[in-house]
């Protein structure tokens, strides 16, 4: 089967204070449809940058990113955004919740925007992540861990073709980490999604068979 995500010769460098900083160079890998992959690497190895590039948020310096046969960096920004809206869900380290919406609306917004909101699935996720008592609260009124669970529930509810998660369990205890992994399993089973999880956690990484290791600016499978 053709892979859902194909990355060829992807390089990224930053210029900072007049110096060029190479994050990674000529990365090539692919992610099969209906698969989960753990993205592992040391702090500063470029995991977040890679996720941003795959999500169409941050441009690569060179190389190609093909997602579901769409070379996303050939698109104009509005088209890339629409592609992301319909096909992807991204979980960020900073949660990216919308401050003006309460927890309930935050969870449902993305799926409502693409018209695939599923009330029973939402209830299931709320139960799974223990968010029932927080539904009417605003992001600023809940803790970091709670915000992270809301962000994960929102992403999972969209039933995305591809889920990109950047340290999704960074602020969670073991019980909640297990809930996150269960949610990912639900996506794999029910929606045939492709999941890429950037993580430091050895226990999370150990539960995901496929691994992509970023080391010295290179990718190893």
């Amino acid at each position: 089967m053709e892979p859902l995500v194909k990355v060829n010769d992807l390089s990224k460098s930053f210029e900072s204070s007049g110096e060029i900083f190479q994050v990674f160079e000529e990365l090539s890998f692919s992610l099969a449809q209906n698969s989960a992959t753990a993205l592992i690497g040391e702090s500063g190895s470029g995991k977040t940058t890679l996720i941003n590039i795959l999500a169409g948020l941050e441009p690569p310096s060179s190389g190609m990113v093909m997602i579901a046969r769409n070379e996303i960096w050939n698109y104009r920004e509005p088209d890339r955004a629409r592609f992301r809206l319909k096909n992807m869900a991204v979980i960020f380290q900073q949660y990216n919740l919308i401050p003006s919406l309460n927890v309930s609306s935050n969870i449902s917004l993305h799926s409502q925007l693409i018209d695939n909101w599923d009330q029973s699935f939402q209830d299931e996720l709320i139960k799974l992540f223990g968010l029932k008592n927080l539904l009417m609260k605003y992001p600023e009124e809940i803790s970091g861990g709670q915000q992270q669970r809301v962000a994960i529930a929102r992403s999972v509810l969209t039933k995305p073709k591809i889920l990109l998660a950047d340290e999704p369990t960074g602020n969670l205890d073991e019980e909640n980490t297990m809930s996150v992994l269960k949610a990912f399993e639900m996506l794999l089973e029910r929606c045939k999604s492709t999941i890429l999880v950037a993580t430091h956690s050895k226990s999370v990484a150990s539960k995901i068979k496929s691994k992509l290791i970023l080391e010295s600016g290179r990718a190893k499978k």
Binding site: R82, K86, I98, L113
Partner: peptide
């Protein structure tokens, strides 16, 4: 910007 970035991240174009 901090309030609108989450929406852009979800996939709402910046022009919108």
């Amino acid at each position: 910007l901090a309030n609108l970035t989450p929406l852009w991240v979800l996939g709402i174009p910046r022009i919108t």
